[in-house]
């Protein structure tokens, strides 16, 4: 437990160092880079940047100051919006989180259901699910997005094409975000259940007269839960990064599209902040999933 939390901290430090240090890897003077463009390089402006980032301090001091500020919620000022980065994030985070939550519900429910169906039914159902998921993982989300917009947004007119706000607006983006995840989860569920089904205790349960439904629910699926929960956690954690593409494709105002805009306008403070947030969330969620394992499998408890 303590080792895991220490590992979490170490990874967070390392990644934040990479994110911070990246600005120094840029060709040329970091001041020019941090100033964003090449047109607005008045000496006063550069001096202001230099002071804002404490560029005259040693590198490690700068890093420490930046990290300390970030930890207390001060993520610097956006060059593009001339606003506190923290405020920008706070304004856009709810929509992104709703999208991720929506997509997570979709992929967990349908992914597990499809996987169970494939494992229990076998035969044609299984082949169809396998073929479907193979295809689903081969289509990049932005292509899925454009197809969904074309079909359900424009051709059939069932969903609004652009903009956000309501859950209705978020349905197509959530489906797009969930599709690849759904394929992965159904595959893991199917595989894990097929492995569990072969175990002796399942035969024992069958020999004691339990119905197939109870056997699948209480033994096969229960035993398969470990890998399924782990994968669901990992995929959910990675979804924040997935919003970069999906929000861009659907023109949603979230932190994913904020990152894309920041990069295209050379707004490095915003880029750094969004990356830091996404990476931190990813590491935190994967650690939580790791800590959940003993609850699912009592055998892990003793080893820990």
């Amino acid at each position: 437990m303590i080792r895991k939390l220490a590992g979490l901290l170490a990874t967070l430090l390392a990644t934040s160092f990479v994110i911070f240090g990246a600005s120094y890897a840029a060709p040329g003077d970091p001041v020019t880079f941090l100033a964003g463009g090449k047109e607005n390089l008045t000496p006063e402006y550069l001096a202001a940047i230099r002071a804002q980032y404490h560029l005259d301090d040693p590198f490690l001091v700068q890093y420490g100051r930046w990290l300390g500020d970030a930890a207390t919620g001060d993520l610097g000022r956006s060059l593009q919006y001339n606003d506190q980065v923290a405020d920008l994030l706070a304004a856009r985070l709810p929509s992104t989180l709703t999208l991720v939550a929506y997509a997570s519900v979709l992929f967990v429910v349908f992914g597990v259901a499809l996987g169970v169906l494939a494992a229990v039914r076998g035969g044609r159902t299984d082949a169809a699910v396998v073929a479907g998921t193979t295809f689903a993982t081969s289509v990049p989300p932005f292509v899925v997005a454009t197809v969904l917009i074309s079909l359900f947004g424009v051709q059939l007119g069932w969903f609004p094409v652009m903009g956000g706000g309501s859950l209705w607006h978020l349905t197509l983006p959530a489906v797009t975000l969930a599709l690849g995840a759904l394929a992965i989860i159904s595959r893991v569920t199917r595989q894990s259940m097929v492995e569990q089904r072969e175990l002796d205790h399942v035969t024992v349960a069958r020999a004691s007269g339990l119905s197939e439904r109870s056997i699948v629910g209480r033994h096969v699926l229960r035993g398969a839960l470990g890998p399924i929960v782990t994968m669901c956690g990992l995929v959910t954690a990675g979804m924040l990064a997935g919003t970069v593409t999906v929000e861009t494709a659907f023109g949603l105002n979230g932190i994913g599209s904020l990152l894309v805009n920041a990069i295209n306008t050379h707004d490095f403070p915003v880029t750094q902040a969004v990356l830091l947030l996404m990476v931190a969330a990813y590491i935190a969620v994967t650690t939580v999933v790791d800590l959940l394992q003993p609850l699912i499998d009592p055998r892990v408890r003793r080893r820990a």
């Binding site: 840029a26 997935g242 990152l259």
Partner: peptide
Amino acid sequence: SRVTDVMYAFPGLLFVVLIVAVFGN
């Protein structure tokens, strides 16, 4: 393996995005 771990801590394409942000599109 440590270097690998740090890169794996960036979900999806975020590591690539960071490089693009620094070195330009």
